[in-house]
Simulated scan of single mutants.
Amino acid sequence: MANELSNPVFQDAYKARAWLEAALWPDGPVCGHCGAIESATPIATRPSWYQCNACRKQFSVTVGTLFERSHIPLNKWLLAAFLLCASKKGISTHQMRRMIGVSYKSTWFMMHRLREAMREGQFPGPLGGEGKTVEADETYVGGKEKNKHRNKRTKGNIGGKGKEVVFSLVERGGSVRSHHVPEVNAKTLRPILVAQIDRKSFLMTDEAGQYYHPGKEFAKHETVNHGAGEYVRGEAHSNTVENYFSILKRGITGTYHHVSQQHLKRYLAEFDFRYNERSGLGVNDSERATKALKGIVGKRLTYRRTGQRANV
C-alpha cells in the first residue's frame, strides 16, 4: 500500500479487495468458517467468493473478520485505516466522515472496528527483561472541564470527579501497554505489573506508595520524587511514560474531546498501537496501516456490542 491518498486501492473497491486478499492470504485463500488453507474453489458466478472444499461453505476475504457483512466499500475501509494510522493524535469522526464520504453513524462504527483491529488479543510476552528498564505510571482522562487540571493525588487516589484511570507500562526503546483500571492502589496494579513485566527488569516509577511493595519483586526498583520537584536522577526517571501520556491526552482532549468509559479501552488500543508501530522504530504509515488491517481476522464487533441500539 503506497502512502499517497490517490493510490488505486483507496479509489477502487475491486483493487482494494485484491490488495486485502494478498495481505491476508499470502499462501492462498483461507476459509473464514473452518480455517482450511488452499482448499477452496473460486465461484464463477460470485467474483471474489470461494467454495471451501472442507466445510462446503462459501466465503470471501471479509468472512470471519471485522469487515464481515459490511456494506461499506472496501476501498473506504482501507482509506479509513490509513488515515487513522497516519494521524499521531487520532482523527475525529467528523473529519473522517468528510474525507471518506460515509455517514457519521457508519464512520463512528468503522473507527471502532478499526480500533478493535489494533487491539492485541494476547500479548506476545512480558515487557523488559534482564538489563532492560520498564516505566510505570498512571494518569487520569476525561471528566468535566473544571476537573481536568485537578491534582491526580486527591484523597484516596481516585482522581477528579468523572475521570477514568489509565495505567501504562512503557519499555524504554520498546512498547507500551495501557490498561483502564478502576482505581489506583497496590491491589489493583500489582497483578498487572507482575503479569506484564519480566521480573528481571528494572522498574522505574514515581514515589507513590502503591509501587513500594510490588517494586520489590523486580531486579531493581527506583523512584523519583515528583512531589519534591525531582524528575531525573541518573537513569531513574519516568519521562518515557510521561511522554506517552502527553500524546494520549492531546489526542483525547484535542481530537476526541470526550471518551466514554465504555469505549476507553479501544481508544487506548489505538494510541498504544501507533506508539508501538512508530516511525522511531522504523515503521512508516503504510506499514502501520497494513499491520492494523491484518488485525481484523478472527474478530467480530457488531453495532449492538458497541452499546448502540441501531443496526448497521
Rank of each mutant, 00 (worst) to 15 (best):
S6G: 08
P8I: 02
V9Q: 02
D12Q: 08
D27T: 15
C31P: 03
H33G: 09
C34W: 01
I37S: 11
S39G: 08
S39H: 07
P42I: 15
A54Y: 00
C55F: 11
K57W: 00
F59D: 02
R69I: 12
L79W: 04
L79V: 03
A80W: 07
A81N: 06
F82E: 09
L84P: 05
G90K: 00
I100A: 00
E116C: 11
F123A: 10
P124Q: 13
P126L: 06
K132P: 12
D137L: 09
E138Q: 12
E138Y: 14
E138R: 13
K155A: 11
G156Q: 10
K163V: 03
V166Q: 08
E171W: 01
G174S: 04
S175A: 13
H180V: 07
V181N: 03
V184F: 03
K187H: 09
R190T: 01
L193F: 10
R199Q: 12
M204L: 13
Y211D: 06
Y211K: 00
Y212C: 14
E222M: 09
T223M: 13
V224I: 12
V232Y: 02
V232I: 14
H237G: 07
H237S: 08
T240F: 00
E242K: 15
E242H: 15
N243R: 06
N243L: 10
Y244N: 01
F245L: 12
L248Q: 08
R250V: 02
T253H: 07
G254E: 11
G254Y: 07
Q261V: 09
L268D: 08
L268P: 08
F273R: 04
E277L: 05
R288N: 09
K294V: 12
G295M: 04
Y303N: 02
A310N: 15
N311C: 13
N311T: 13
N311K: 14
V312H: 13
V312E: 07
V312P: 04
